[in-house]
Amino acid sequence: MAPLLEVKDLCLDYGAVRALNSVSLSVEEDEIVAVLGANGAGKTSLLKAVSGLIHPTEGSIQFRGEDLSHIQAFSLAGRGIAHVPEGRRVFSTLSVQENLMLGKYGVRSSRKKADLDSLEERVYSLFPILKDRRRQLAGTLSGGEQQMLAIGRALVSSPVLLLLDEPSLGLAPIIVQEIFSLIKKIHEEEKIAILLVEQNARKALKAASRAYILELGKIVVSGDSADLAQDPRVQAAYLGTKAC
């Protein structure tokens, strides 16, 4: 059976700069896959290409066997891909509840919409703090709460695949801990496949079953998380290789 998401030979250019160079990866159903790498390695570009925000120069992206290259970005949300962008990007002057409500916006069919109301409750039970603050403006939440809201907003569309871009960015270690255990919980309880882009390699490798390491737009290492956790090349991707 074809994987849930299959990216083949993806190349992406910003003007004269090549951000992604022949990247291939796949995500199976019910799996967490991590993409690791230093800042500027092309991780965010990869996610943006998958969700149609930027158009690749070459290569193909298939989701459930369907080629995504000619599909409008906004219609992907209704097809089961939810993207939590880097930096959370909650709508700061909208309330928490409105933010969550917008998460369902892309879902078209009314039958499914009815199911989603229960999902909203589910999100509130996953993140009880959001329920307490649902009338508050999203901009007044703390960083960790905003991250929960951004993830919750993605979950209410009942996605099959969740794209998470740097969920730990700028958060205190204890909050990072919380976010990662929530990610694992979501994966286990909701049966959602997750493509996780992270700088925090150790945490990501613990959560994911497989991982790819990007360096300057190329995948340099890939494999099982357990193996990669021991691999010196992971640290090298962040902190360089030179021996002292």
């Binding site: 205190a172 150790r202 902190l239 030179k242 002292c244």
Partner: peptide, 29 residues
């Protein structure tokens, strides 16, 4: 997170557990 956590030559930084943690995340859960 807005603070200086270490300084020195790059070689030392690469070995420095604080730096490694900043980049790769903490070892323990």
């Amino acid at each position: 997170s807005g603070k200086k956590i270490a300084e020195g030559p790059m070689c030392d930084m690469r070995q420095n557990p604080k730096v490694i943690e900043a980049y790769l995340g903490s070892e323990e859960d």
